[in-house]
Design a protein around this nucleic acid. Sequence first.
DNA 1: GCCATTAATGCAAGCGGTTGCACAGCTGTC
DNA 2: GACAGCTGTGCAACCGCTTGCATTAATGGC
Lengths: 344, 344
Amino acid sequence: MAVTIRDVARASGVHISTVSRTFSAPHLVNPNTRSRVLAHAEELGYRPNRAARALITGRTYNIGLIVADIANPFFPPLIKAAESQARKHDHHIFVADTNEDAALEEEVVRALAKQVDGVLLVSPRMSNTLIEQLSREVPLVVVNRQIAGIPAVVMDVARGARTAVEHLTALGHRHLALLGGPRGSWTSREIRRSAAATARTAGAELTIIGPNAPTEFGGLTVAQDVLRAGATAVLAYNDLMAIGLIEGLMAAGARVPADVSVVGIDDIMLSRLTRPKLTTVATPTAAAGRAAVDMLLAHGDDRRTTAHIHLQTELVIRDSTGRGPGPHSPADPGDVNAPEGVAS
Amino acid sequence: MAVTIRDVARASGVHISTVSRTFSAPHLVNPNTRSRVLAHAEELGYRPNRAARALITGRTYNIGLIVADIANPFFPPLIKAAESQARKHDHHIFVADTNEDAALEEEVVRALAKQVDGVLLVSPRMSNTLIEQLSREVPLVVVNRQIAGIPAVVMDVARGARTAVEHLTALGHRHLALLGGPRGSWTSREIRRSAAATARTAGAELTIIGPNAPTEFGGLTVAQDVLRAGATAVLAYNDLMAIGLIEGLMAAGARVPADVSVVGIDDIMLSRLTRPKLTTVATPTAAAGRAAVDMLLAHGDDRRTTAHIHLQTELVIRDSTGRGPGPHSPADPGDVNAPEGVAS
DNA sequence: GCCATTAATGCAAGCGGTTGCACAGCTGTC
DNA sequence: GACAGCTGTGCAACCGCTTGCATTAATGGC
């Protein structure tokens, strides 16, 4: 049915090994022969079977990409960038969604291991130990997690969280809440650590709420907790939770940002479009996707590339944060509230 | 390095064919032998190499999924559902993003053909002829396109467009605009055909604007065209364009829905969260992803499954549509505008 | 108790390629 | 003109696995 190397060999009157070399070691074949073979290959529509090739060479030209939830708007830009970068290097991408389930992550890595050159683990939920173990079975690049000896791309959320908390305390907020992310999230721990340290320095109180599902619903359901805690400003694990929280706060009669300020993390497309527009910490997701693919492909060359790439984050101030009850720092503009802010 | 069938055979003291049969034809091997082999396989961490198996059986247990733009929020829920459904049947999914480029679609299908059992072509931009040709090289299931002889999953956008236009004319709008989608989109043509027919029946005028990029920016840039045309209601090819259009209209000083009503299509998550909340035609994207995978997997059994599955759409009335200048149908509630509608 | 079945396993070819090695023909050197 | 050294190609083994066929042992019918 499909055209194989044998068909091309027969048509060109050469041995299959010559056809093989025409594609994988062109300098070893006579230019005349080569062009004849290429012509016949073209005519027959021949394409080397990558799986067959991989059987011998060990290179599949495939990459596995494992994410917690494709439908979470944080991931698609990363997937898109990774796919595009991979294809630039003639690689294809397997995408798997683990539904925030650590056990499933392990299973999928193992299932994919044999048919990929490496796996990108984005925001994994499983333990470091397990990741280290898996990295002995298949080349791994981890995004949003730091593990000694494992190549990683991390976004500097700690700095992002610090900037966000400083923004809030500068606005005069003295009682902050932090909505934690899912259990097992390195990012969530980083944020908590950094936010706690920054709040302490600023002399502000910080109530931790969570872990929570990193979804709109996860934010929606803790609105009452935030109000009950008496916080006037909230930093959420991600934008989705921040948006859900705002919905929940409004439903409870609280105004954002007049009564409660909310900051998200990620700067997903949504954040510009909700009302009030969300103040958030922008994370370079596309760059992370590209960098992770690059690391994985470089990995093949020198075995022990265990570098960690750090990507900067940036606070984007929009309309969901405003003055708190305390004195605000004059350095910070007081009227960050948008004129088109939601009606009170 | 990796453990192969030979390692398991050696450990179990049987021939490799017995190990092979233990996994792919268990009824042919003695229960005692089988359990012994399984025990050793488990212990060694053996997993059959799917690529090697595929070489002989022709079944890869992989599926290709080709979309125009992963970052377009319409696609992720579909991808997620397809991936989940595929994994339920022990298949993995290659995801490729073609950036709305028809030529790239063809290239990717061909590149993937040898290592998948079939390809899901979601909202393809290439020609029917080319799709027919490709379907002779690899099993294809098309989503959002109808081609005789090719299995397809289509969402009934024609009906959705009709319902949307009827909604608008019932509100008293007499001059409508339609924002077309990208060139090559079957959905876009369906919408146009249906909207035109419905508008004619209702005696309303319909201005067609497009083709356009199916993005927020694509909607934003045609806001002026809409105003210039004098339309008081707009049906957009998708929610993203509708949202961009609303931004553009507001920037130009027009109020939504007071001056112009806007209806989108898709009901992406965003649509509930923007202000005003978007009236839109909900399309069953997750169901489409599942159905497409099911069709592809069934395809293997009886060769000529060329059924077309039709999925229903539904108009979701929110806050972006309101009364037009003409008489409105009493059957239609007049006060669809939300109380929290954007300030005038 | 003999023969035809049947059950369980081994053997080996082959899926579509790659690659180390052998070999033939040509070139250039002395 | 003999020989070393290329260059270009063919040969055959092999990657990890499946599968038709052969082989052997055990079973059952009469």
